[in-house]
Nucleic acid binder design. Structure first.
Length: 685
RNA sequence: GCCUCGAUGGCUCAGUGGUAGAGCACGUCAUUGGUAAUGACGAGAUCGUGAGUUCGAUUCUCACUCGAGGCUCCA
C-alpha cells in the first residue's frame, strides 16, 4: 500500500492507531512519566524501541512488577559499573533480577568486605545522580567477542547462547538469536560503561528510586560446584524510599519470627554443641507441641484407615543394597558400624562382620512388613504409617535450624494398592493431606507437580499418565497455587508436593505424594489377585508434615510463636495476686489437667506486674487471674494476648469455657474472639 | 563440601598484648504487690578447643569444633 510509507498501524493498549514509522514508546507515552518501558507483542522492551507495522504495545510503569524488574536489572548494571570503577580488575559474571532485588557475580582477588559495600553504594549513588542513559546496540557475535575480550565469563556466555540456539533451547527465542550490548552513556555523550545484556533497561539511571546493598556471598559460576567460586553482591531496589524502608521493616519483622530465635525465647528446643550439627533436643514445651501434633496426626490417620507400624533406626547394609539407596545415596548416609567381626590369632578372619547403617529412609522397612506374609488383593490398599526417625549425613553447610536436620522424624506412610485402586487412592490422599494442613492453620504454600522425564523413567507409560492426570486434576481443584515441574520427576515415579514458605520467604517442601514404580520391583512385592495370578502392587510414598521438626518450624514462624490454644504448650497461665490465691488456682489447674488442659500456676516471688509480663512474653493464649476479689466471689478473670479482659467469671463456668476453648484450632487474640469461639455470654453489670 | 563472617557467665552484648564488665536470668533478704520489669545484696567466665608467636595471649597466627549468610545439595 502507498500509505505504508507514511504510517504504520499499531495497537496501543488494545486500541488501533496509525502512527509515524519512527514512533517509539517515548512519543506514545510522553504524558506519563511513570512509563519506563514498553511491552511489544508481549515482550518487555526498551521504551525507545522502534515500532513496526502490526505491533501491539502496552506501557510498563515503574511500580508494576515488570517495571520493578527492569529497574532492578538497571540497578545491578549500575552496581557492576561501580564495582569496576573501584576494582578495575573485577571480572563480570551474570547480574540477574531476583525477588525484591538483584545480584551480580564478580571474580575478584579478595572478597568484598562490608566496608567495600558501603563504598560501592556511594559510587552507585553518584552514577544514579549523573543520569546516565542506557542505550541498546545489537552486535555481531565477533564484535561481541571483541568487545568482551577481557571478560572471560562474558565470552563463555556468548558461546553458551550460541549452543543454546543450536540445541533449539527456547530461552533465547525472545531475542531472535540477537546479541546486544548496553552502553551507559553520560550526558556529554561519552560511554561510561557497557555490558553484554538482553535488556531491557530504564531510559536513565535517575529512575532508580531507592536501593540498598544487602550482603556479599560466594557463589559458583553458573551454579556449578566444579566451577570457580565468585563473589556475589545482593541488593534490593524499589520505586521509592518509602517502599524500600517498608521492605526493610518487613525483613526485620520476619527475623523476629525466625523459629530459631523463638525456639530459644519460648524454651522449645536447643542444639547442644555436645551433640553435633543438625541434632536437636526438644525441651518440655517443644516436646509438648510435638506431642500435640503427633496425637492429632495419629487420630486423623486412624480415621483414614491407616495401620500403625514401628521399625528400628538401624539395619544391616543388605536392606539398602536391595533398595538401591546404598548405591545411589551412600554419601548422604552416616558411615557404617562394622560389627561382629572376629579374628584368629594370626589375624585372619574367623567370623565375617556385618555393616550396620542408621536408616536414611523408612520405606524399605515398610516393604519388609508388606513381605512378612503372602498378600491378597483383599489386603489392599494397605496403608502403613509410622513416625520414623531417620538420619541423613547432610553436608556441613546445609544444616539449618529445624528445617534441615541430620536426625529428623518423618510422618512416613507407604500405601500399597492395585493398579485399579491407584486413582481413587491418590485422590483421597491429596484431599486428606490438604485437609490436615488446613487444620493446622497453614495457608502460605503452593503445590508442585513433577512429571515424567521422557528420557529417564521406569514403569508403564499409561500408569504414569493416569497418575499424573489424577494428581493434576485434584491439585487444580484444590484452588491452591499450582506449579508444574515438567520432566522433574524422579525416574521411579511422578510426585506432587506441597511447598511452604518460611518467615524469610524461603520455600521448604513439606507434604509429598510420590508414586514409586521401582521399589516394588526391587523388593519383588506381590499380591495374589482375584484370578489367582501374582501381581505387583503400586507403591505410594506419602509424608504429610514431611519432617515433624520442619513442620514445627513452619508453625512457629506462621504463628510468630503465638500458637492457637490447641497447640500452645502452656494453654493457661494462672497468676495469683499474692500467695493466698496459689492454692485456689492450683486446684483449678489440677481439675483442668484431668480434662487434658495444660495449665500452669506462677508460684514465683515476682510482683504481679512482672508475672503478667512473663506470661505475656511466653505468648500464652490467656492468663487466668485470681486476687482476693475473685477468690471471695468464687470467680476468676481472663486476660487475653491483646490485653483485653473478661472479669469475674464464676469458677465452674470458667472451667467449662477453658476446656471448650483449649480444643479450638482458631486463633484467639482477644476477648471478642474468645466469646465467639466459646459462645459465652457474660452477664456484666 | 565451598566462600565470607562470627564465638566473652544460662541469655543478649561491651572490652583489653599485662588473666575481664553490663543488663536480663539465677540465689538470699526485705517487699503481699490489681494488669508488661519492687529494691538491696550475692554467686557465677582459666574469654569455644588445641597448638604457635611473645617475658606475658581472651586479644596476634594456624588448625579444629560450633554458629550465621550465601552457593551447591536436599532420596
Amino acid at each position: 500500500m502507498a500509505e505504508s510509507d507514511q504510517h504504520i498501524s499499531i495497537t496501543v493498549n488494545g486500541e488501533k492507531r496509525e502512527v509515524d514509522p519512527a514512533t517509539t514508546g517515548v512519543q506514545l507515552f510522553e504524558d506519563d512519566k511513570q512509563v519506563v518501558a514498553v511491552k511489544i507483542n508481549g515482550i518487555d522492551r526498551d521504551i525507545y524501541t522502534p515500532l513496526h507495522e502490526g505491533d501491539t504495545v502496552e506501557p510498563i510503569t515503574l511500580t508494576s512488577d515488570d517495571g520493578l524488574a527492569i529497574m532492578r536489572h538497571s540497578a545491578t548494571h549500575v552496581m557492576a559499573q561501580a564495582v569496576q570503577d573501584l576494582f578495575p580488575d573485577a571480572k563480570l559474571g551474570i547480574g540477574p533480577v531476583i525477588k525484591d532485588g538483584f545480584y551480580y557475580d564478580f571474580d575478584v582477588k579478595t572478597p568484598f568486605t562490608p566496608d567495600d559495600l558501603k563504598r560501592i553504594e556511594k559510587r552507585m549513588k553518584q552514577i544514579i545522580k549523573e543520569g546516565q542513559s542506557f542505550r541498546r546496540r545489537v552486535v555481531s557475535r565477533d564484535q561481541a567477542r571483541q568487545e568482551e575480550k577481557d571478560q572471560p565469563y562474558k565470552l563463555e556466555l556468548i558461546d553458551h547462547a550460541e549452543q543454546q540456539i543450536a540445541a533449539g533451547d527456547d530461552s533465547e527465542k525472545d531475542y531472535n538469536g540477537e546479541l546486544s550490548m548496553y552502553d551507559n552513556v553520560r550526558s556529554d555523550g561519552s560511554v561510561a560503561w557497557k555490558d553484554l545484556c538482553h535488556g531491557p533497561h530504564l531510559p536513565s539511571t535517575k529512575l532508580i528510586g531507592a536501593f540498598k546493598l544487602q550482603r556479599a556471598a560466594a557463589a559458583y559460576w553458573l551454579g556449578d560446584e566444579k566451577n570457580p567460586s565468585m563473589q556475589r553482591i545482593y541488593g534490593t531496589a524499589w520505586a521509592s524510599k518509602e517502599d524500600l524502608s517498608k521492605y526493610l521493616d518487613l525483613l526485620e519483622e520476619a527475623a523476629k519470627r525466625d523459629h530459631r530465635k523463638l525456639g530459644r525465647d519460648l524454651d522449645l528446643f536447643s542444639f547442644p554443641e555436645q551433640l553435633g550439627p543438625g541434632l536437636v533436643v526438644f525441651h518440655p514445651k517443644g516436646g509438648t507441641i510435638i506431642n500435640v501434633m503427633e496425637d492429632y496426626s495419629r487420630k486423623m490417620h486412624r480415621r483414614a484407615g491407616y495401620s500403625f507400624v514401628q521399625t528400628p533406626h538401624l539395619t544391616k547394609g543388605e536392606l539398602y543394597e536391595i533398595s538401591g539407596h546404598l548405591h545411589w545415596y551412600k554419601d548422604d548416609m552416616y558411615p557404617p558400624m562394622h560389627l561382629d567381626e572376629e579374628k584368629n590369632p594370626d589375624g585372619s578372619i574367623k567370623r565375617k562382620g556385618q555393616d550396620y547403617y542408621m536408616k536414611p529412609m523408612n520405606c524399605p522397612m515398610h516393604n519388609l512388613i508388606y513381605m512378612s506374609r503372602q498378600r491378597s488383593y483383599r489386603d489392599l490398599p494397605l496403608r502403613l504409617f509410622e513416625f520414623g526417625t531417620v538420619y541423613r549425613y547432610e553436608k556441613s553447610g546445609e544444616v539449618h535450624g529445624l528445617t534441615r536436620l541430620r536426625g529428623l522424624t518423618q510422618d512416613d506412610s507407604h500405601i500399597y494398592c492395585t493398579r485399579e485402586q491407584m486413582k481413587d487412592e491418590l485422590e483421597s490422599l491429596l484431599k486428606f493431606v490438604l485437609k490436615v494442613l488446613k487444620d493446622f492453620g497453614l495457608s502460605n504454600f503452593y503445590l508442585e507437580i513433577s512429571t515424567r522425564n521422557p528420557d529417564k523413567y521406569v514403569g508403564d507409560l499409561d500408569v504414569w499418565q493416569e497418575a499424573e492426570d489424577t494428581l493434576r486434576r485434584v491439585g487444580k481443584e484444590s484452588g491452591l497455587q499450582f506449579r508444574e515441574d515438567p520432566g522433574g520427576a524422579a525416574f521411579y515415579g511422578p510426585k506432587i508436593s506441597v511447598e511452604a514458605l518460611d518467615a524469610l520467604g524461603r520455600n521448604w517442601q513439606i507434604s509429598t505424594i510420590q508414586l514409586d514404580f521401582q521399589l516394588p520391583h526391587r523388593f519383588h512385592l506381590e499380591y495374589i489377585d482375584r484370578d489367582g495370578q501374582r501381581k505387583e502392587p503400586v507403591m505410594i510414598h506419602r509424608a504429610l508434615f514431611g519432617s515433624v521438626e520442619r513442620f514445627l518450624a513452619l508453625l512457629i514462624e506462621n504463628y510468630g510463636g503465638a500458637f492457637p490454644a490447641w497447640l500452645a504448650p502452656v494453654q493457661v497461665e494462672g497468676i495469683p495476686m499474692n500467695a493466698d490465691q496459689e492454692e485456689y488456682l492450683g486446684g483449678m489447674r489440677d481439675e483442668l489437667r484431668e480434662h487434658d488442659v495444660r495449665m500452669e500456676v506462677d508460684y514465683s516471688e515476682d510482683r504481679f506486674n512482672k508475672k503478667i509480663r512473663n506470661a505475656a512474653k511466653q505468648k500464652v493464649p490467656f492468663i487466668l487471674i485470681a486476687g482476693a476479689r475473685e477468690q471471695e466471689a468464687g470467680a476468676v478473670s481472663f486476660r487475653f494476648r491483646d490485653g483485653s479482659q473478661l472479669n469475674g467469671v464464676r469458677r465452674d463456668e470458667a472451667l467449662g469455657l477453658i476446656e471448650k476453648f483449649c480444643d479450638t484450632h482458631e486463633q484467639v487474640m482477644n476477648k471478642e474472639d474468645f466469646l465467639r469461639v466459646t459462645g459465652f455470654q457474660p452477664q456484666e453489670a
